[in-house]
């Protein structure tokens, strides 16, 4: 009996820390294989920089998923936000800070549409955001006139942009250490918001059992809305970092971050036995993806096979994390 209990708790421990163990394990393996080339301050910065964008989008997803919501359209919305950011900076010559504020407000306003479909029209999150993906893509390209927004190119209506090119300040957003600092700030904010404020606890309560939360007097619609608005802010931040990193608001520039960010949240769910989307777990999930990408490239896995290896390791982490789930 005792032995069984012990065995069970060992299994439990492995499941709870599967993502962390996988992370540490891959760091060790890559260090053994590559030595200094992998295990160095410079490469650590590389990895952190690489994971920063995924992490920011994953934090946005974490906040949405805490009350059991879901957003497929986060990254298409981010692409749109990036067009707005780049165009308000270049075309209209707004100061950097003003452009950032405009972008954040714009994203929140557009997110009202998402909230309208989910809360007023009562469409399931997944379906509502699936359809919005196309809306975002189409409207975004309508705004840019069908192309990217980048320096040296005329505006949509063929005029001369107010600014001729990017400034150092603008480009710094996407560079280390700034993008890393922004990422850490997002993680810290989400961590505190979800764990130490009543709003966060309400969101988790809704995620755990929506009916019970509602019958406890929690205004579930209002809090789903709050979660949506916080998500919108993170999406806007992510969009700005991407835009700066690419030195342009590229067509569908952010769309590819959706799946890695969702994967990060799912991998991070079980970290430390939390069993719910949580900020720290999410960051560990994103780190795992980034370490694998970096390490595998160094080891010489060709870039086009990389997704398969990455996917396999993620699947493995998820298998372990969900192994304890009871069958219905």
């Amino acid at each position: 009996m005792n032995q069984l209990l012990k065995k069970k708790s060992v299994g439990r421990f492995l499941m709870d820390w599967a993502a962390v163990i996988a992370l540490v394990f891959s760091i060790i393996v890559f260090t053994i294989m590559q030595g200094q080339a992998f295990f160095s301050a410079a490469n650590a910065t590389n990895i952190l920089r690489a994971m920063s964008i995924t992490t920011i989008f994953a934090i946005a997803a974490t906040v949405t998923m805490a009350p059991d919501g879901f957003d497929m359209s986060a990254c298409t919305l981010a692409s749109f936000s990036a067009y707005i950011f780049a165009s308000s900076f270049l075309w209209f010559g707004m100061p950097l800070l003003v452009s950032a504020i405009v972008t954040i407000l714009f994203t929140m306003v557009l997110y009202l549409l998402t909230m309208f479909l989910i809360l007023v029209c009562k469409i399931p999150d997944m379906l509502a955001t699936c359809s919005l993906m196309f809306v975002h893509q189409g409207l975004g390209l309508w705004w840019t006139g069908g192309g990217a927004v980048s320096s040296g190119m005329p505006t949509r209506w063929g005029g001369q942009p107010v600014r001729a090119g990017w400034t150092e300040g603008f480009l710094n957003i996407g560079r280390a250490p700034w993008c890393i600092i922004i990422m850490l700030a997002c993680v810290a904010f989400a961590f505190i918001f979800l764990n130490y404020t009543k709003h966060g606890r309400y969101l988790y309560a809704m995620g755990g059992n929506r009916v019970a939360a509602k019958l406890s007097g929690i205004n579930v619609k209002r809090y789903r809305f709050v979660a949506g608005m916080v998500t919108a802010v993170f999406i806007a931040i992510g969009a700005m970092v991407v835009c700066s990193r690419n030195s342009a608001a590229q067509i569908t520039g952010c769309d590819n971050y959706l799946m890695p960010s969702l994967a990060a949240v799912f991998v991070g769910r079980s970290v430390g036995g939390a069993e719910k989307p949580n900020a720290i777990g999410t960051m560990i999930g994103a780190a795992l993806v980034a370490v694998l990408e970096n390490g595998l490239t160094q080891v010489g896995v060709v870039y086009y096979v990389l997704p398969a290896v990455k996917g396999a390791v993620l699947a493995l982490a998820l298998v372990v994390a969900y192994a304890s789930k009871k069958e219905d």
């Binding site: 009543k198 755990g208 939360a213 406890s216």
Partner: peptide, 28 residues
Amino acid sequence: KEGVLVSETVDFNLSAACLGKFCKMSFI
């Protein structure tokens, strides 16, 4: 199904209906 939040602690459940009372500036 409707009464308790089974995945939360006793502590949180007992304050779930009046969490505002235990907060200062939204911080619990």
